[in-house]
Deep mutational scan, measured.
Amino acid sequence: SEEKKKAKERLERLGASSELARELLDRANGNAEKAERLLRKLL
């Protein structure tokens, strides 16, 4: 979806690899905010 694509791009801008961004979104069930929080914990 367009929303998921935007979320993935945002995670990548924050420093996630394409693969990591995809994994985070999967774990967050597509929830962009939750995926971002997970990423911030990792960085």
Rank of each mutant, 00 (worst) to 15 (best):
G30S: 03
A35M: 03
A35W: 03
A16Q: 02
E33N: 09
A35P: 00
L39M: 04
K6Q: 12
A21R: 02
L24I: 06
E12G: 03
R27T: 06
L38C: 10
N29H: 11
K34T: 12
A32N: 03
S17K: 03
R22K: 12
A16S: 02
N31M: 03
S1D: 14
R13V: 06
A16F: 03
E12D: 02
R22D: 15
K8I: 15
E19S: 10
E19V: 06
K8M: 15
R10P: 02
L25A: 04
D26M: 14
L38Y: 07
E33R: 14
K34G: 07
G15E: 01
L38R: 04
R37H: 10
S1E: 14
L25S: 02
L24E: 00
E36G: 04
E2S: 11
E36Y: 08
L25G: 01
L14P: 00
L25F: 05
E33S: 10
A16P: 01
R10D: 04
L11Y: 02
S17A: 04
K6W: 11
G30A: 02
E12V: 13
E2P: 09
E33T: 09
A35H: 00
R37W: 13
N29A: 08
K41I: 14
R10N: 06
S1L: 12
L43P: 01
S18A: 14
L20F: 06
L24C: 06
L11E: 00
L20Q: 07
A7S: 07
A16R: 02
L20V: 06
L20S: 02
S18T: 08
E36N: 03
A7V: 08
R13Q: 11
A28Y: 11
K8P: 03
G15N: 02
R40D: 05
R27M: 13
E23V: 14
K4R: 15
R22N: 12
D26A: 14
K5Y: 12
G15R: 03
L20G: 01
D26G: 07
S1M: 12
L24N: 00
L43Q: 08
L14A: 05
K6T: 10
S17Q: 03
G30P: 00
A16T: 02
K41F: 14
N31W: 06
K5Q: 13
N29C: 13
L25D: 00
R10I: 07
N29V: 04
L24K: 01
L43Y: 08
S1K: 10
S17T: 10
L11M: 04
N31T: 02
L24A: 02
K6G: 09
R40F: 09
E36L: 15
E9D: 08
R40N: 06
A28M: 09
S1C: 13
R13S: 11
R13N: 07
E2R: 09
L20T: 03
L24D: 00
L20A: 02
E3I: 09
A35G: 01
K34L: 15
A7Q: 06
R40Y: 11
A16I: 07
L39T: 00
G30K: 02
D26K: 14
D26W: 14
